[in-house]
Every structure is written in structure tokens, then in C-alpha cells.
Write a protein that binds this DNA or RNA. Structure first.
Lengths: 221, 221
DNA sequence: ATGTCAGGTCTTGTATACAGTCTCCTAAAC
DNA sequence: GTTTAGGAGACTGTATACAAGACCTGACAT
């Protein structure tokens, strides 16, 4: 009741709980390895255990939570190695997404990508750097949606949130410079150049990996 | 001592329900678009609604079920177009998996792949064609695990099951000829040739797409 | 000191109960 | 004949209750 009450976008407590738990994980409010005790979470959110349990299952399927039968659930722990490995997957998947998006060249999705770029430009200009990470994820997801491949979109959403999660520890998440790369990727997609779009998407992820490695050099998970 | 009694396949009803529902969906026992009424499923499986609900959430996150708040869940419907699109994703993901597997060239995982190939050979020889589809999925998943990339593995499992689901409607799922392609992919991985491994994986998926298209020509989802 | 056994506590798994919402059917009004 | 109000039934969402497993502690034996 008095617990979460976010936007009206969600019709059920369960969805609100899922979104809230995911947010807390992504922001680090819930730390990696931290135990997720159903009772406590339910009490903290002002709901019963049932919505919490269902949320935990979903987050486990998405890879944010590790759940062991009868032992309980914990926030997933990403080792440095696993974080690095994710970039390989992103290059393959986002490269494909960019290629397909360039092939489709849908007007509506291009419009949406452009709007995200505008919002990001304003956010950077006005110093609202806390939104940059979300806009970044939104852009990448927009490319996935522009590809018009339903399973690709389904698969990319948790993948990108995971990437945002990894990056949340670093300053690179708020770097405005990556938006020039986004812009050039957008242009390649809008121009319909499949090879170029894929290459730029791959290069963008590769650049992200480099800055990630630079920031986490000598750090353990 | 503190017995680490792992190994029990399913410790909870919830996991059994999830596996059973997934099986019924993959085999077509539950048809696409069919409504999943919690009460009926619970009664049919001899459990309460709670494990069923949690299973439905998981299957929805994996893309096998479409759940709409307050309206209920149905078995996901794959249009012909969506089925075709999946092959694009598979080429990208499985190509990467094969490349990374060749790079790692782990002895243990190679051993497992080889064992799957042996089992498949026997299954084909003895005419147990009903196992071929499962062994096929097992081989592809084995390549993913051999890549040693945890998120890639996490992502491939539902993807391959979805592919098996799509193929379950066709005779190609039981075709013994694809195993020569598997064998050649295995050899490329064992030889550590990254480019060749990726190329063979992509070609294998492309061949699968061709036979899928041939069988479903002129068919609506 | 090591081990192990018993008891209590904490937590998860499962079942049941109740409330809210949607659907569909009926019947009245125009 | 079409439309619309209303109500019964069906189903989902949420809360609560109970059962069972896992962990911790401390006493006791070796």
C-alpha cells in the first residue's frame, strides 16, 4: 500500500516489486552477493511474500539474482572476468541488431532513436548526468527494437541492463563522449548501410570495453 | 562433514512444474496460443496455484509464455516471420559461441561434446529418432558451455529451446544428416581454429534455416 | 580440542482464503 | 434489430497460514 507507488505504468504490485528490486540491484542499493530474504523485502516494500517471490524468479531468469532451492536468493555476483566476457556477447548481439536495423530502416524507430539522442544531448548540456546511463541503455535498446526482431529485443533487454549494472561502478557510464559514437551509429542505420552500422556498433562496444578495462585495471570483481 | 548433498535434479515442486510446463510447450502438448489457467494447471499437476504461478513467470521471462496482467497467460505464438527471425539471432550467438569454444579448447568440454556426438550416432543407428531433437539441443548448448562465457550460456539455453520448439513442427528436427555438420563443427573447435569454427556454426544454422524454409513454404505461422 | 547431537530459530516451500477485475450472458430500453 | 445496464461466473492478484528444511548454538562425549 504505502510501499512503492511508482508510476501508473504498472498495474500489479508484482510488476512494481520486480521493477523496484531490479532498480535497487542496478543502482547498487542492493549489493552483489547480498542475501534477498523474502520476509524482509516484503516488509520493506509493504507487500506480502508472494509478489516478492515471483519477482525473484523473474530476476533470476534474467541473471540478476542467483537462487538456490531451499537456500534462498542472493544478488548475483559478477566477477571481473564475467564482466569482461559480457562485452563479447554484446558485440555479437548488438552488431547484429545494428545490421538488421540498417536493413529495415523503419521511420518510426529512427524517429525514436533520434529523440533519445536529443534527450541525451540536453541531459549532457544541462549536466543531468545521472540520466545518461538510462538514456544510454535506452539508445542501445532502441537499436534492438529498430531491428524488428522480436526475440532479439527480448534477449537484449536484460543484456543491456546487465551492461548498465556492470558500468554503474565506473565513471564511464556518464561519459558524454560516447554519444558521438551513438550519433554516428544512428547515421549509419538511417543511411541503411548494413556493414557500416554493424562495424560501428561493434566498435562502440569495443571502445566501451577498453574504457571498462582501463578503469578496472588491477581490480577484483 | 556438513553434507553437500547436491545432485538431486529437482528439490522443489516449483522446478518440476516449470520443467513439465516447458516440456508440454516444447512438445506441442500445450499448443501455441492456448490459455494457461492457473487453477486447471494446478489441479492437473496435483499442486497448488503458487508453484504454477512462479513457473509461468519464469517461462514468460524465457519467452515461451505471454502473460498479460489481470488477463492471464497463454502459450506464446510464434509467427512464421518470428520463427525465421530467430535464425539470425542464432547465427550471431552460436557463431560467437563456436569461436570462443575454439579459443578455449577445454578438454572437459570437448569430452562432453564428443560424448553427445556418440550418443547421437547411437540414437540414429538404433532408430531412436525421438531423442535426436534433445541431443541436438544438447550439442549446441554444449558448444555454448565450451565457450566458457557464463552470460552466453545463460542466454543460449532458452534460445536453443525456442529453436527446438520451432523445429518440433518439422521433420528436419529428426534428420540424421545434420550430425555430419555437428561433427565437423566439433573438429574445428577441437582443432582450435576460431574462424573455421565460427564459419561452420553459422553455416550449420544457415542450413537449418534453409530446411526450415523449405518445409514451411507457403505456410502461415 | 574435535566431533556430534539436540534443540530452537530463521527462512523457504506450499497450500488455502479472500478480494478485485474481467468476461460473457441476459434482459430491458430505444 | 441494436445497444446498453447489470449481474453471475471465472480467473487473477494478494495476503495469510502452515509445513519442512537449513543454520546456529551450546552441551556433552570422546
Amino acid at each position: 500500500m504505502s510501499g512503492i507507488t511508482l508510476g501508473a505504468a504498472h498495474q500489479t504490485l508484482r510488476d512494481e516489486v520486480t521493477a523496484e528490486l531490479r532498480r535497487r540491484i542496478l543502482t547498487g542499493e542492493l549489493r552483489q552477493g547480498e542475501r534477498l530474504v523474502e520476509d524482509r523485502l516484503a516488509a520493506a516494500l509493504g507487500v506480502s511474500r508472494n509478489p516478492v517471490r515471483e519477482s525473484i524468479r523473474v530476476l533470476a531468469a534474467e541473471g540478476f539474482v542467483q537462487a538456490v532451492p531451499r537456500l534462498g536468493a542472493t544478488v548475483a555476483v559478477l566477477s571481473q572476468e564475467e564482466a569482461e566476457e559480457l562485452f563479447d556477447v554484446r558485440m555479437a548481439v548488438e552488431g547484429l541488431a545494428a545490421r538488421l536495423a540498417a536493413r529495415k530502416r523503419g521511420a518510426a524507430s529512427a524517429e525514436r532513436l533520434h529523440r533519445v539522442l536529443e534527450q541525451a544531448r540536453e541531459a549532457v548540456a544541462e549536466g543531468r548526468l545521472d540520466q545518461v546511463a538510462d538514456l544510454n541503455t535506452a539508445f542501445h535498446l532502441g537499436v534492438g527494437e529498430a531491428a524488428g526482431n522480436s526475440y532479439l529485443t527480448l534477449m537484449m533487454k536484460p543484456m543491456l541492463q546487465r551492461a548498465q549494472w556492470i558500468f554503474s561502478r565506473t565513471a564511464a557510464a556518464r561519459a558524454p563522449h560516447s554519444w558521438t559514437e551513438h550519433l554516428s551509429l544512428y547515421e549509419a542505420i538511417a543511411a541503411g548501410d548494413e556493414d557500416d552500422a554493424q562495424a560501428r556498433a561493434v566498435a562502440h562496444v569495443a571502445a566501451a570495453r577498453r574504457s571498462f578495462l582501463a578503469e578496472t585495471a588491477g581490480t577484483d570483481g
